[in-house]
Computed example of a mutant assay.
Amino acid sequence: MVHARPLDLEGVLAFVRVVDLGSFTRAAAALDTSQAAISLRLKRLEDRIGTRLLDRTPRHVAVTREGELFLLAARRLLEAHDSALADVAGAAPARLSLGISDHVAGPDLPDLLRRLGLAQAGLVAEVRIRPSRDLATAFDSPGEGGFDAVILRTEEPAERGGTVLAEERLGWFAAPDFPAPRAGEPLRLAGLAGPCNVRGVATRALDAAGLPWTEIFVGGGVMAVGAAVMAGLAVAALAPSTAPPGALEIGGAFGLPELPRTWIVLRARRLDGRAAEALRTLTAAYRSPGGR
């Protein structure tokens, strides 16, 4: 069937963001609008196309078969729109310098950057993965090589001038076949190199509980630590969102001390235009799941 009227780009963008972020609430945050507005845009788009694109319940969002068929075309349409605007403007692309804590980025970051379109025309995104402590110091010392925004993991929810995106309790993660240590045997640990807040929290908790431990793997990033975990080499203290797929939380089964809650916090300078839009979109992906 040929549709005489063109599609509403705001509705198309709302649909793509809901799919990418898995939530109406996160899509609303990314697009700087309300959840009700996102729902209305989706309804108008579905009415315009004449088919249901999403199935949603209070706790779940799923793409219909028709939605899957429409998704690729929707992405192409948005890319063509952005490219056309960039060609007409003829200006230098906006820049976004973003620092993300290694204990926030997680194994899905590459796919997330691709799906959220940070490589689209009109933006140069510079993303650096650093320890939270280093990012906080760099953000407080602006200048050449500084950051427009940083996303940190902290034990203090009221990070100076920051916005709390999510709250998570750290856990002890291991491969499914990792053996519990025998009585008196030290727990084999994997952690990040250098000063790491999560490593410090974990070792202090073990010391306070009087449990012996030994560090047998030091990784240059959380992905390396996750690889050591899944290879069965060691246990690692991680947030559930950054644990490797297939790893199990074994704290209770092994009698390990409970680890504290942590907060994912955004600190950002005043941005506008494409850089502000990209930052809203990316940070929405790290927000705690809310209403759908």
Rank of each mutant, 00 (worst) to 15 (best):
L96A: 13
L233M: 12
S241Y: 11
R5I: 00
D148A: 05
R287L: 09
A94V: 00
A183E: 15
G162Q: 13
A4Q: 01
A74D: 05
T137E: 15
V198L: 15
T242I: 14
S288W: 03
A174W: 09
A239V: 08
G291V: 11
R26Y: 01
E68S: 06
G226N: 14
Q120C: 05
V229I: 11
G194P: 07
S97I: 04
G200H: 05
D8Y: 04
G252W: 07
R270F: 06
P93K: 08
A138I: 15
I250S: 06
E168L: 08
S23A: 03
A237D: 09
G117D: 05
V63N: 03
L238H: 05
E168M: 11
G232K: 09
G246Q: 01
S34W: 02
H103N: 14
V235H: 03
E249S: 09
T214W: 07
R115E: 13
A105I: 11
L170V: 06
F139T: 09
I100T: 06
T154I: 13
A243K: 03
L98F: 10
V218C: 06
T163H: 07
F147K: 03
G117I: 01
G117E: 07
L192I: 04
A36Q: 14
D272S: 15
T203W: 06
V150P: 09
A236H: 03
R153K: 11
P245D: 12
V164D: 06
L259V: 02
A202F: 07
E249R: 13
S241E: 08
V222T: 15
A14Q: 00
E79W: 09
H81I: 00
A62I: 05
L78N: 07
D134C: 08
A92N: 08
P176N: 13
T283C: 09
